[in-house]
């Protein structure tokens, strides 16, 4: 699929990547930056598409899915990373695989001041919680970063998150 009103090509490639890697539970708090993944997961009868009330639910859901032998991914906006902090104690102390994708706000070209504090804190907070961060700045970064993060999560039992920069997804205009 090519870039169009249906969203950028890299987002569709990302969805295909996740399915090829047997990631079949998508949990998320709705976010424009993840529109393609969310919409496609909702339309796909082969995957679970779970809307959360807060992002930390998705961290615990991921660990539960692993207990039962199923792979999942958590889609969050950078602001939602702050909501996950204490729940990462579960992934860390239980050495649960965890794969997340954060769509960034509050960095490259942000026009809403309220997004700045958590956007700037996202990577330091994740790293303080033991989550390995990989940042995708361009479309060609996305699949290599996801490949690396998925390998670290599901082969090395790590928590890993790919950060999709505003440089990639486009700064929201206000």
């Amino acid at each position: 699929m090519t870039a169009s009103d249906d969203g950028p090509a890299w987002a569709h490639e990302l969805y295909e990547f996740l399915k090829e890697n047997e990631i079949t539970i998508f949990s998320y708090v709705p976010d424009a930056g993840h529109r393609v993944l969310i919409d496609r997961s909702m339309a796909d009868p082969d995957v679970e598409s779970i809307a959360l009330t807060t992002e930390e639910e998705g961290v615990a859901l991921s660990a539960g899915a692993h207990l039962g032998g199923r792979r999942s991914v958590l889609l969050v906006q950078s602001s939602g990373v702050g909501n996950c902090i204490n729940m990462f104690s579960l992934t860390q102390i239980g050495r649960f695989p965890f794969l997340g994708i954060a769509s960034m706000r509050g960095e490259f070209g942000e026009g809403n001041p309220w997004q700045m504090p958590m956007g700037q804190a996202t990577q330091p907070v994740l790293e303080a919680c033991g989550v390995v961060c990989l940042k995708a700045e361009t479309p060609s970064d996305v699949i290599p970063c996801m490949t690396a993060a998925t390998t670290m999560a599901y082969k090395s039992d790590q928590a890993a998150m790919v950060l999709l920069s505003q440089r990639l997804i486009g700064a929201k205009a206000f």
């Binding site: 539970i25 615990a60 859901l61 899915a65």
Partner: peptide
């Protein structure tokens, strides 16, 4: 049985993930 001893607030979500997987 899997017991949390922290991660307060996570039990129902963890159960949901397990239910979807099994």
């Amino acid at each position: 049985c899997y017991y949390l001893a922290g991660a307060m607030g996570g039990a129902v979500s963890m159960g949901l993930g397990l239910a979807l997987a099994q």
